[in-house]
């Protein structure tokens, strides 16, 4: 393990320990097993409320230095979510044609419903999966983001919801390469942070580990790559008194 790689068995052990801790912290991770096999993955979903600029001239992806972010985003939104949002991310719904609406003369008044203002902020759902890659002997982060209707966002759209300071880091950082990949277990398109540099940045972490406070490979790795795509790893994972994080 000190070589910076992680075999599948250790991966599952690390996941189990992470899960235990997540359960205590109610951090929302769960293990999804693939039917009839040992294989599986860690899964977590998160919500983010996003306020979108009414003029989302989709800029040239990439270069990053060119313009201010057009989307502001918070993972723990407070009241700001009320600002008017424009439907850039909402699939252009042309359901007028499809009315089929209810011809409800008597139904129209439901005074038991509180009026929630229609222009609420756009809620994005993020889904994160941690899988093991045999060929890289490393954990791999898969993720996708989608609207409340279930429409997956393009990378440009995800990009605009990544915090600007991370956006720069994502471009310059040697750790991360995002690519569009089919989820190896689900067969659905996901974004993936490519693990080609994982071994490189994990090696020093593992070499520096203290005999008495061993490192949970998956947890340490996640704390490095997670924030880049908006996935927070609470500090409490590492300040845990109760559970040991040593997989051996």
């Amino acid at each position: 393990m000190s070589r910076g790689v992680l075999d599948e068995e250790s991966f599952r052990l690390c996941c189990r320990l992470l899960l235990q801790r997540s359960e205590q912290l109610r951090d929302g991770w769960s293990w999804k097993a693939v039917q009839g096999s040992e294989e599986g993955y860690l899964r977590k979903t998160a919500l983010r409320s996003v306020v979108i600029d009414p003029s989302p001239a989709r800029d040239q992806e990439g270069s990053g230095s060119d313009s201010e972010p057009r989307t502001s985003c918070q993972s723990c939104p407070d009241q700001q979510g009320r600002e008017k949002e424009e439907s850039a991310l909402v699939a252009s719904v042309d359901t007028d044609r499809v009315s089929g609406a209810i011809d409800d003369d008597e139904d129209d008044e439901d005074d038991g419903v509180c009026t929630v203002s229609g222009g609420s902020s756009q809620v994005l759902q993020y889904e994160y999966h941690i899988l093991h890659s045999c060929s890289y002997a490393a954990p791999v982060l898969y993720f996708r983001a989608f609207t409340q209707e279930g429409r997956s966002l393009t990378l440009e759209e995800v990009w605009s919801s990544v915090h600007p300071s991370f956006r720069l880091r994502l471009q310059s950082s040697p750790l991360n390469t995002i690519s569009l990949q089919e989820h190896p277990l689900l067969g659905q398109p996901f974004f993936m942070l490519h693990p080609c540099r994982t071994e490189e940045f994990m090696r020093p972490v593992l070499q520096a580990q203290d005999q008495h406070r061993p490192v949970n490979y998956v947890l340490s790795w996640l704390s490095v790559v997670g924030p880049v795509v908006g996935l927070d790893v609470p500090l409490k994972y590492s300040t845990s008194p109760g559970s040991s994080t040593e997989p051996h």
Binding site: V93, D94, A101, I102, G150
Partner: peptide, 21 residues
């Protein structure tokens, strides 16, 4: 009661275009 309003606030269905994904 209970049919959900669409994003326009009207009693109508929703549509999502998933061709991109």
């Amino acid at each position: 009661v209970g049919w959900e309003k669409n994003p326009k606030g009207a009693m109508g269905p929703r549509m999502v275009n998933l061709s991109e994904c």
